[in-house]
């Protein structure tokens, strides 16, 4: 399936079914990040239960240096 991740269309393998799978696929499972799917923030305890569908708009953000 193809997801729009951080504004970019990216094809992911069929094994990626949930937000948890997606983070593992990109090796981000231990990173400090926050995920939004179709403008809804996904809390950490929802990662494994939030299913992803073709065309979903996913934002993966984190804290960077700023003033």
């Amino acid at each position: 399936m193809t997801l729009v991740i951080n504004g970019e269309a990216i094809a992911v393998p069929d094994e990626v079914k949930t937000v948890g799978d997606l983070l593992a696929h990109f090796r981000l499972e231990n990173k400090l990040c926050i995920v939004e799917v179709n403008v809804r923030i996904i809390q950490k305890h929802e990662y494994e239960t939030t299913a992803l569908c073709d065309g979903d708009r996913v934002e993966i953000v984190h804290f960077v240096g700023g003033g």
């Binding site: 991740i5 951080n6 504004g7 990109f26 090796r27 981000l28 990173k31 400090l32 990040c33 926050i34 934002e59 993966i60 953000v61 984190h62 804290f63 960077v64 240096g65 700023g66 003033g67």
Partner: peptide, 17 residues
Amino acid sequence: FAVRRMNIFSPEQPNFL
């Protein structure tokens, strides 16, 4: 801190936080 999109293709990138 600021909140910004992550570069998902380089997870090893060091992050200050």
